[in-house]
Amino acid sequence: MKHLRRVNRKAARIERHLDEQRDVVALQRGGPPQGAPPRPHIPLGCSLLFSPGWEADSSGGAAGLCQPVERDLFDCHLGCFWPAQVPDQLNHSPDWTSKCAAAQKDWRKIDLIFP
């Protein structure tokens, strides 16, 4: 870093972060000075299908998830996108979101489904 100087605020933030000697684990892909960190461990029970997954993002963490999850629930329900995580509108629970005009506000009105 001797011959490089930061020119914007983001670079300043990175510099400050590294000065604090904090280890940055997720969303990193190795390289000096840290070397390749071991791949994060994704617990069984996580669905690994999509990027991001339901429980974990592609690096095994929560940083890359759709947030808040309630914002996404209608799409997951209508499109049957997460058949093992969210009730599907097509068969199991056609009325799952009927009491809930906007999941982000009315999320307390949706039920846990035992098909």
Partner: peptide, 12 residues
């Protein structure tokens, strides 16, 4: 490592 994540909305 602990992953604190979202609920499941359907249980099989």
């Amino acid at each position: 490592h602990l992953l604190v994540t979202v609920p499941l909305y359907i249980r099989f």
